[in-house]
Write a protein that binds this DNA or RNA. Sequence first.
DNA 1: CTAAGGATTTGCT
DNA 2: GCAAATCCTTAGA
Length: 226
Amino acid sequence: MAAKKLKRQSEQFYSSPEPKRKKIDQEADRCATAFYSQPCESLAKALLGCTLVRETSPTLRLTATIVETEAYLGGEDKAAHSYNGKRTPRNEAMYMDPGTCYVYSVYGTHSCVNVSSLGEGAAVLIRALEPVTGVENMYTRRKSAKKDKDLCNGPAKLCQALDIDKTLNKVDLTSCACLWVEPRSHDLADDDIVCTGRVGVNYAGTEWSNKHLRFYVKGNRCVSRL
DNA sequence: CTAAGGATTTGCT
DNA sequence: GCAAATCCTTAGA
């Protein structure tokens, strides 16, 4: 009986457009609204060590550990797309509920993925992952990657590896059935988190590019740069 | 180091 | 409306 119901739900689920899919059963472990509802810097650090899960088909699940993030605060933060409360069609997701996915394209060909946090226009950029499952499939999209650590060691690389593009903009990570985050399976001490200036934001001036709003797991081979 | 690349925004007419 | 400048990057000299 239950199995039949689940099968029907599953069929409905996979026949609807991917970004619109809602979860059909209890995920074993998925970060919920309470997790995302924390200040940007705090969420950026909390995401380290968590698992980003991307289901691209009924039979293919890609997972990778988050090892590098950056906080974009909105308001005074000149590096943020939402600087000074600016709203555009592009950055709407930054103002949506905590746990909303913000995917934007940069330099034309590349996508980057962020997670909305608590605060107006505040979001966390995911900069690097350590691949865990579905590695072979990642290589099919990451043509130039020679080693596993090259698959996801950059914000646009990870999007390509996990097949994340703008069709996933504005999805709710707490309910989307094809993309979500799972909590840390192991503890991560504060001592193992390195804080530095953010990458690629020199246009914002030294004050904001040097602020320690970039976080990565100390010693991890998959971070985008030293 | 530089070129590529196209979506997005801005600043005009 | 259209043209120009900008860009949270990557791959490959």
